[in-house]
Structures are given as C-alpha cells and as structure tokens.
C-alpha cells in the first residue's frame, strides 16, 4: 500500500517544469550582492558623517582671518561667538553645560532606573511586570520635546522654584531632570535585560547557601549582570549627551562654565539649535563654529557608544 503511494508520488513530482539552474544561480547572486550593497549603506552613512563634519569644521579652523586654533578651541573657557567686537570660541563652557545637564540626568535616572529594573526582574509578579513594562514603553515613546515642555511648565515652576528662588525660568536642574526622565526607560529596560540574563541557577545556588533576597541581588545577580548594566548606563548617558530639544527649551542660552544647577547653561546641542535657527550667514565663522561643536559632540558620543558596545559584547561572551 505505502509502496504504491510512494511510487505515485514520485511520478507526480516529475510533472512540474524544471527551473533552470543557471537562472537560479544568477538570481541568487543578484540578491546576495543587492543585499550586500544595501548593508554597505550603513557604513557609507558613518563615512559621510565624518567627511561632512571634518570638511565643514576644517572650514572653521582654517578660514581666512580666523584666529581659532585647535588649542584655543579645546581649552578656551569663554564661548561668545555672537557677542562683542571680538568673538571668542573656547568650547569648554558648552562641554561643561552638557556635562552638567548629563550628570544631573545620570544622578536621577541611573539609580532609579537600576532599582526599578531590580524590582521588575527580582520582585514583581509576571502581571505587575507586564504592566510596568507597558508604562515604561509609553515613557520611551514620548517625544523629547514634550519632556522639554514638562521641564519648562512643571518641573521648574512647581518643583524647583518653590524650593529656592534662585532657580530661574531656564536652569540646568530642570533640564537635567527632564533628560533623566527621558533616559529612565532606556536605563531600566536594558538593565533589566542584563539582570534577567543572569541564569536562575546562580540565584538558586546563592539561596541554597542561606542568602536573603538582598544577598542574592546585591552579591550575585547585580555583580553577574554588571557589564550589561554598565553598557546600559553608557548608552543612556550617550543619549543624554546628544539630547537636543529638552535643553534647547529648558536649559537656557547662556554659555557659561558653572557647576551650579540653578544657573542657566548652554549645551553643545543647544548651541547648534541656536545657530541653525538663527540668521547667522551660512559662510560666516559663527555658522561654521556649529560644525566644530558638532564634531566635538560626535567624537564624544562615538567613544561612548564604542565603549558601550565593547562592554556589551564581553558581557554576551560571558554567558555563551
């Protein structure tokens, strides 16, 4: 019975038209190289970014009549491109502004994000976890300009100004907290991934030695997931450094080197917004300075994401 069916099947299988082998090979090749070409677009993007930034900021440094040098740019402590008769281009106040805002954001988001991640991965029931993850997803989807609005109309007037009247309408603190809220979901979900990646057998091993939940979490799970957590922190801080709309709205427009969170500061990104929205002539030195700032910003974030990716890669190797 089965033998007959098998013979019939073999016969039926012969009926279809044979597809040309040569055509098939050509088609496969074509697709292969087509996909390869599209993949290389992403490499091209990086190259293009670097070329554009280098070329345009080259124009800034080597422009005729420009007195800016690399040394004066990277070590100068006064940034006043639009003020006074003799503009000064020392990038440190902008970098300082970015560092101040990012530090505030980090101080807010890293501990809260990590603790929330610990709660999600070690304490929450599956249902609570689902609900909280959904809330975090909502937070992650909110456009950053909304956080800027929130800083300007809620955080500063209702949380900061009642505390101290030294907070102006624009200040580093409000912007920093808003940036912190923005990166909170990133910190949280990436750290949670790292914590959940720690094998259950390690938790069991620790409990079997008489650990409390605190011991298990603080001495086993968090150390074991540490490189994943560090990578999460780095990626989140990179996002904070590159964040534009929040600081453009809420941090102010005065480039100054200060550690006082109640003062207004200008970050690298906020300066770029100011130039691109302003009416500085496209070939003028002020306009070109924004490219030098962009180059600095790109270099900083590039190093940070590179480090983050390497840390993450090592973390993955640990468990594979």
């Amino acid at each position: 019975m089965t033998a007959i069916a098998a013979r019939a099947a073999a016969e039926l299988a012969q009926r279809g038209r044979v597809r040309g082998v040569a055509f098939r090979r050509f088609y496969e090749r074509l697709l292969h190289f087509g996909l390869l070409g599209l993949t290389l677009l992403s490499v091209l993007t990086t190259v293009a970014i670097i070329v554009v930034l280098v070329k345009e900021s080259g124009g800034f440094f080597f422009m005729e009549g420009s007195e800016v040098t690399f040394v004066s740019f990277f070590t100068g402590t006064v940034w006043s491109p639009l003020l006074g008769a003799k503009p000064q281009y020392g990038v440190l106040p902008l970098v300082g502004g970015t560092v101040l805002v990012t530090s505030i954001a980090g101080l807010f988001a890293l501990p809260i994000g990590l603790l929330t991640a610990v709660f999600l991965s070690e304490y929450a029931s599956p249902r609570t976890r689902m609900l909280l993850k959904a809330i975090l997803e909502v937070l992650a989807g909110i456009p950053t300009v909304v956080y800027g609005f929130f800083a300007l109309t809620f955080i500063t007037p209702y949380l900061l100004q009642p505390l101290s009247d030294r907070f102006g309408t624009y200040n580093a603190m409000g912007a920093g907290i808003a940036v912190g809220i923005m990166i909170l979901p990133i910190v949280c979900s990436l750290s949670e991934d790292a914590l959940r990646g720690v094998p259950q057998s390690l938790r069991d091993g620790a409990y079997a030695l008489g650990s409390t939940k605190f011991d298990v979490t603080a001495r086993v799970v968090v150390p074991a997931g540490l490189s994943g957590i560090v990578a999460a922190f780095l990626l989140a801080l990179t996002r904070a450094i590159g964040e534009t709309m929040i600081v453009a709205l809420a941090a102010g427009g005065l480039a100054q080197l200060t550690a006082n969170p109640a003062e207004q500061v200008q970050t690298m990104t906020a300066y770029m917004v100011q130039i691109f929205l302003g009416d500085a002539p496209a070939n003028g030195i002020e306009y070109r300075s924004s490219y030098a700032v962009a180059m600095t910003l790109f270099a900083i974030t590039f190093v940070m994401t590179w480090t983050g990716a390497l840390v993450l890669k090592r973390y993955r190797e640990e468990y594979e």
Binding site: G242, F276, F302
Partner: peptide
C-alpha cells in the same frame, strides 16, 4: 555606533 549618534548630527 550609528544608533548612538545624536540625531542632530544626522540633521547636519
């Protein structure tokens, strides 16, 4: 790395 590049740089 591209995913970490600030979006304003893409604007440029």
């Amino acid at each position: 790395n591209l995913s970490g590049v600030p979006s304003i740089v893409y604007g440029i």
